[in-house]
């Protein structure tokens, strides 16, 4: 950071070299450790089953085989179904979640709303104390009767106080005079929110929207609790992966029975370990591809979240 200042350049001695060695090797090592498990899954997915059985998993592929991917795509419908569920939930959840959070944050950041502290505490208190997992489970399954319903996957993640706080800190940064000016011009509250405030907080919408989207995309917990095996067609992506990886024999049977190809396949002949890896890659792929685009929004959100708690 201060490396550019002339005073440092004069002193560029042994200490700088030592620090550089430590800094480069430390961050390089940690970054490599972060990447290795990904490489292992990738290499495993492109290996042949025999190579894995013989040598175990490795960072680099030991041979090249598309057998595992071919097996996944022998019965693509279940994967596509899980993708459709997750994409649908993520889209609907992010849209409504964002609307809900923005609207609430807007009211709570209005200084002429004298009850805003009361309501802020009303929301904030729920992060301090909760009834726990059992009453929540009974609420969803019995009181609301949402067992095996998509709503059981949608509702639990749609509103979060942490996202509300991030949103509130963004909206609070908008000068009051802008809102006042809109009111003088005869804007109602809804119009002020949608036409004046929202365009000003586009980065916040992106950040909070991505936080919500990631929560939906990675959710398996709610499916585990609220979607029974009888309705496995409603599994979202991550829970689908969880189920197949933990019961790979059942998945192999499913593929063998439903295989599109005319040739009769026995589940015994299908790969096991590489199939798990290929399925994991098929499920992880899109998020890794989207990662370079969305990373900066997350960095922004975390920084704000850290400052405002």
């Amino acid at each position: 950071m201060a490396n550019n200042s002339p005073a440092i350049k004069i002193k560029r001695g042994r200490d700088v070299i030592i620090l550089n060695i430590i800094a480069y090797s430390f961050t390089g090592l940690i970054a490599l450790l972060c990447l290795v498990p990904f490489l292992m899954v990738l290499a495993g997915s492109f290996s042949s089953e025999e190579a894995i059985i013989q040598n175990g998993f490795n960072i680099l592929p030991q041979d090249f085989s598309l057998e595992a991917y071919k097996t996944v795509f022998k019965e693509p419908m279940v994967v596509i179904q899980a993708y459709a569920t997750t994409i649908g939930l993520t889209a609907v959840g992010t849209l409504f979640g964002l609307l809900l959070q923005t609207m609430t944050a807007y009211v709570l950041s209005r200084k002429d709303f004298e009850w805003r502290n009361f309501f802020s505490f009303f929301f904030y208190f729920t992060t301090l104390f909760s009834g726990g997992v059992v009453p929540y489970f009974i609420l969803i399954t019995r009181t609301l009767g949402l067992k095996d319903s998509y709503f059981a996957l949608l509702l639990p993640l749609i509103f979060s106080v942490y996202n509300l706080l991030i949103m509130k800190s963004y909206i609070s940064a908008i000068p009051d005079s802008l809102v006042d000016a809109a009111k003088i011009d005869g804007c109602g509250e809804f119009r002020t929110l949608f036409q004046v405030v929202m365009p000003l907080i586009k980065p916040a919408l992106a950040t909070v929207g991505l936080f919500i989207a990631l929560a939906y995309w990675n959710d398996w917990y709610n499916a585990m609790l609220y979607i029974t095996d009888k309705h496995s067609e409603k599994y979202p992506l991550q829970y689908f992966l969880y189920k197949q990886v933990n019961n790979i024999e059942a998945y192999k049977k499913l593929i063998a029975n439903n295989a599109i190809s005319s040739s009769v396949v026995s589940s015994m002949s299908l790969p096991t370990n590489t199939l798990k890896m290929a399925l994991t890659i098929v499920v992880t792929g899109p998020i890794i591809l989207a990662f370079p685009i969305v990373q900066k929004y997350f960095v922004q959100g975390i920084t704000i979240g850290a400052v405002k708690g």
């Binding site: 972060c34 990447l35 899954v41 998993f57 991550q238 997350f298």
Partner: peptide, 28 residues
């Protein structure tokens, strides 16, 4: 960016990775 990558994946996938590394027969 490499260090940020693990933040984006679900724990289900981490579970698969752990199995890759620590399974007794095929683990790295």
């Amino acid at each position: 960016s490499m260090m940020f990558l693990p933040y984006f994946i679900s724990w289900v996938i981490v579970g698969v990775m752990a199995f890759n590394i620590f399974s007794s027969d095929y683990g790295f």
